[in-house]
């Protein structure tokens, strides 16, 4: 996994609440058995019309939102299905960071497992960023836990220290957990009969 420390980049705005993972990556693209190549299908039904042409009225098709590495969205982003294809497609399209007033639990976890950073800010701060993001460069500093724009906004965000360390180092979680094998062995030895199939 690629570590995240400081990220400077452009932000795209998707001012919609409750964006579900069925929209992020529609089900017809879940049949692949690889982790890669999902970016071209991101928001497919919103991005493209029946003939496969870009819909002009969809936010991410507009010039100011192209080539951005940060996505700013409305509350409860990523609700619904647990499909990890959602963060895979966002990341493959170019988004490493998503900022929203709130995230659905499973989606948030799935981002963190892929070296993506979901940042929760208050509704007011998110709507400020939505209104001002435009062509601005945002600076996200994970070490300092700050979001800074070039108009004077500097705000901090919360992240669990465990995930902060994982992202800063780009660690593979399974390798870390395997170091706890003695504890898992021990637990399994003391397993109650109730815990078995």
């Amino acid at each position: 996994m690629k570590p995240i420390t400081v990220y400077k980049g452009k932000a795209a705005v998707l001012d919609r609440a409750n964006v579900d993972t069925d929209q992020i990556i529609p089900k017809q693209f879940l049949k692949r058995i690889e982790r890669t190549g999902f970016g071209e299908f991101l928001f497919y039904d919103w991005r493209f019309d029946e003939d496969g042409n870009e819909r002009e009225d969809f936010e991410l098709n507009q010039p100011q939102n192209k080539n951005a590495g940060i996505l700013i969205a409305g509350e409860n982003f990523g609700c619904g299905s647990s499909r990890e294809h959602a963060p895979w497609s966002l990341q493959d399209y170019g988004f490493d960071i998503v900022i929203a007033p709130s995230f659905a639990d499973i989606f948030q976890n799935n981002c963190l497992k892929n070296g993506m950073l979901p940042i929760t800010l208050t509704k007011d701060k998110v709507s400020y960023l939505m209104n001002n993001a435009g062509n601005d460069q945002l600076t996200i500093d994970l070490r300092e836990q700050t979001v800074i724009d070039n108009k004077g906004l500097s705000t901090s965000f919360d992240i669990h220290p465990y995930w902060k360390e994982m992202l800063l180092n780009g660690w593979d979680e399974i390798s870390i957990t395997l170091q706890y094998s003695p504890q898992i062995d021990e637990f399994e030895k003391s397993e109650r009969p109730i815990s078995t199939i």
């Binding site: 982790r35 990890e84 976890n109 799935n110 399974i174 957990t177 395997l178």
Partner: peptide, 11 residues
């Protein structure tokens, strides 16, 4: 998610 599926497989 699928990363967690892999994690449960392994651990």
């Amino acid at each position: 998610g699928t990363s967690e599926v892999e994690h449960v497989f392994a651990t």
